[in-house]
Design a binder for these strands. Structure first.
Lengths: 132, 132
DNA sequence: TATGCACCTTGTAGCAACTACAAGGTCAAG
DNA sequence: CTTGACCTTGTAGTTGCTACAAGGTGCATA
C-alpha cells in the first residue's frame, strides 16, 4: 500500500511516517517503479504499535526499545514490564504536579474580586517578590 | 546586579534570561563599562513573575499578555481572570487525559503475567490496531 | 494526445522553550 | 601577571512532529 493509505489506516500524517523512517522507528518500505513507498501489512502493524505507544506517552527512544524487545519472542518480559512501570511513574508524577497547579489556579480565581488590575489578587499572587 | 546573581535569585539559567530578553519577555538591562548586563530590582520582580507564570503552565505568549495587563493598573481585571480560567481549563483537560493513560498503563501491568515476550500481554496490547 | 488532478518524492525550515556549546572579553584575587 | 570565575555574542541542538517548495507519477477525462 502507498503512504497515503497507510496514513489513513493509522491516523498518521504521511510526513510523520517519513519522519519515522528517517528516525529508524519504521523500517524503509520497498519502492514501486515510480519510486513510491510500498508498505506491507507488517509495516501497518509496526506503525500501529508505534502510534499506540506514543499515544500512551512513551518517548521515541522508549518506543524503539519496545520495538526491539517485542522482536525477541523468547526474551524475558521483565524489560517491557520495567518500561511500562517507569512510564506509569512518570504519568503519576505529571498528574500530581498538574493537580497542584490546578489548585493554585483555582485559588487565584477565587481570590480575585477586584475590578481594577491595580487591586488584582491574581497579579499580586504572580508577582511574588514585591517592588514592581 | 549581574546576570549570574539574577539567575541564582530566580532559579533561572543565565542563558534562559538572555533568551527571555531576545524574546521580548524581559526588558533589556543597562550595561556596565565592561558590557555586562546590569539588572535592577524591577527586572528581578518581572523575572520572578515570568517564572511563576511559566511554572503554572502559561505559555510564553500568555505570559506576555499577563505582563502587559499587569502594567495597566487601571484596566479591568477581567482579561487576567479570563487567561487564568483558560489555563485552568487546559490543566483540567491534561489531568483527565493523563488519568486515562494511567488507567491503561496499570491495566497493562496487571495483565502481564507471562515470562516470555512472545506471550506478553503488554506487547499484544500495544499491537492493537487503532480503534477510532 | 493532452491535460488536469491527486498523490507522491526529496529537501529544508519552522514550532516551543529552552539548553549547550565555542571563542573570546572582563575583572578581582593572589 | 596570571588564574579562574564570570560575562559576551552567535550558532546549533533538543523532541516530535508539521509545513512548505519544487518537481515527478499515475490515472481519468476531453
Amino acid at each position: 500500500m502507498r503512504i497515503g493509505e497507510l496514513a489513513k489506516a493509522t491516523g498518521t500524517k504521511a510526513e510523520t511516517i517519513r519522519y519515522y523512517e528517517r528516525e529508524g522507528i519504521l523500517p524503509a518500505a520497498d519502492r514501486t517503479t515510480g519510486n513510491y513507498r510500498d508498505y506491507s501489512n507488517e509495516h501497518l502493524a509496526t506503525l500501529s504499535f508505534v502510534r499506540r505507544a506514543r499515544g500512551l506517552g512513551f518517548s521515541m527512544s522508549q518506543v524503539k526499545e519496545l520495538l526491539t524487545l517485542s522482536d525477541n519472542d523468547d526474551k524475558s518480559c521483565s524489560d517491557v514490564d520495567q518500561l511500562v512501570r517507569q512510564q506509569l511513574k512518570e504519568v503519576n508524577r505529571k498528574i500530581e504536579n498538574l493537580i497542584l497547579l490546578r489548585d493554585e489556579l483555582s485559588q487565584m480565581l477565587q481570590s480575585c474580586e477586584a475590578s481594577r488590575i491595580g487591586d488584582c489578587q491574581i497579579v499580586e499572587h504572580l508577582a511574588q517578590p514585591p517592588q514592581v
